[in-house]
Amino acid sequence: MTRLTEAASGVYVIAATPFTETGDIDFNSCDRMVDHYLAAGATGLTVLGIMGEAPKLTSDESAAIVRHIMKRVDGRVPIVVGASAPGFAQMQDLTARVMDMGAAGVMVAPPGSLRTDDQIVTYYMQVAEFLGETPFVLQDFPLVTGVQISVPALARIFNALPTAVCLKHEDWPGLAKITALRKEGTLNRRISILCGNGGVFLPEEMERGADGAMTGFAYPEMMAGVVENHRKGDMERARDLFDAYLPLARMEQQPGAGLAIRKYIMYRRGILASPALRKPGAPLDPLSRAEVDRLMARLEKRLKELN
C-alpha cells in the first residue's frame, strides 16, 4: 500500500460522487469518471471531499464509494479520503476502514468552532493522536470552514506532527501564505502543498512554490497541463493553457451553484450519465445550462487554436 508523503505532487482530483436522477449512487458513471481522471493526467484522487457531497452519504455508502473507486484505480495512483467529522470516533472509524482498503491517507478540515491558534493546534494534535500512523492532509479552506489558520499555527502543526504531510491550501487570498511556508526557517521540513479553489489561481500558486493541485475542476487536463509545463519551465505555455479554461473555471467558482455546474459539464462530456445532485441540491436552470454550453463551445475553439 502506497502511503501519502511530503513528496505528493501533481494533480489530486477531488472526485465527484455520481448519482442517478432518483438519488442512488451511479457506480457505472463512477467507473467512467475514474478512467477519465486518470487519462487526463491525475497523479492521485481524493474521495469524499467537500465537493464530493460527502455529508449527504451514509457511512456505509461512503465506504462503498471508496471501495469501488479503489478497485477501479487498482493501485495506479494513491487515494486520499476525506475523513472530516464532528467527532473523533467517526473520523477514527472511517480512517481505519479506508486505510484497510488501501487508501494512501486521509484529509481533515477543522471544525468551525475553532477560533484561536492554540485551539487549532490542539485540535490537530488530537487528530494525529486518534489517527495514529495514518498520514493526513490538513485542509485549509476558511471560505467554507470559517476557520482562519495562520502561518505560525500551521508551522506549529507541521513541525510537531510527522504524520501531517500535506497542506491543502484553499485560503483566498492566500498566495502570500505559500510564500511564507516556503521561506527558509518557517518549517523544519518541506511538506507537500496542493492547492484548491477549482484551480483558478494555479499558475500563481505553482510559481509561489506549490506542488500541484487538489481540486475538482471539470477539466483536470488543464491542471495537469499547467503543472507539467511549470515543471518544464514553460510558464508561458502554462498560462496560455490556463487562460483558455479560465472562463469555465470562473463559472464553476460560483458559491452554491459550482457543483451543479461541474456535474453538468461532466455530464455534457459524457462522463456522468446524469448531472444530478443528491438533495438538498438543485440542478441548473435552462439559461444557466445554455451559458455553460456557450463557454464549452468557445473552449473547444480556443484549444484548436492552441493545438
Rank of each mutant, 00 (worst) to 15 (best):
L167Y: 15
V165M: 04
P162F: 09
W172V: 15
P152E: 05
A155D: 11
A180P: 01
K183W: 00
V165C: 07
F158T: 15
T163S: 11
S150N: 10
D171R: 12
A180H: 04
L181R: 09
L161T: 06
V165S: 04
K177C: 09
A153K: 01
A180K: 06
P152V: 03
P173V: 09
S150V: 12
G185Q: 00
W172I: 14
A153T: 04
T179C: 12
I157E: 05
W172L: 15
D171V: 13
R156F: 11
R182M: 01
G185W: 00
H169C: 05
A164E: 06
K177H: 14
I178M: 10
K177M: 14
R156N: 12
K177I: 14
L181D: 10
C166W: 08
H169T: 04
A164Q: 05
A153M: 05
P173G: 08
V151Y: 03
K168I: 01
K183I: 01
N159W: 01
V151F: 03
W172Q: 15
L154K: 11
P152R: 03
L167P: 14
L161V: 11
A180D: 10
G174I: 04
G185K: 00
T163C: 03
A164L: 05
I157G: 05
A155F: 09
A153W: 07
W172P: 06
W172E: 15
L167C: 14
W172A: 14
L175E: 13
V165Q: 04
D171C: 12
P173N: 08
H169W: 06
S150T: 15
A164P: 01
K168D: 05
K177S: 12
G185Y: 00
C166I: 05
T179W: 11
L175C: 10
P162V: 08
F158G: 14
G174E: 02
F158R: 14
H169K: 08
A164K: 02
K168Q: 09
G174H: 02
E184M: 07
T163K: 06
F158Y: 15
D171I: 12
A176Y: 13
G185R: 00
A180Y: 02
N159P: 00
L154W: 04
T163H: 02
I178D: 08
L175F: 08
R156L: 11
A180E: 09
G185N: 00
A155W: 07
G185E: 00
V151Q: 02
L167K: 14
K183N: 03
P162D: 14
W172D: 15
I157C: 05
I157Q: 01
A155N: 08
L181Q: 10
V151W: 01
H169F: 06
A180I: 06
L167E: 14
G185S: 00
R182F: 01
V151L: 02
F158A: 15
V165G: 04
A180S: 06
P152T: 03
N159Q: 02
F158H: 13
R182A: 00
E184F: 07
L181S: 11
L161P: 02
T179A: 13
L167I: 14
I178V: 13
H169N: 05
I178K: 10
P152N: 02
V151S: 03
R156I: 11
R182Y: 00
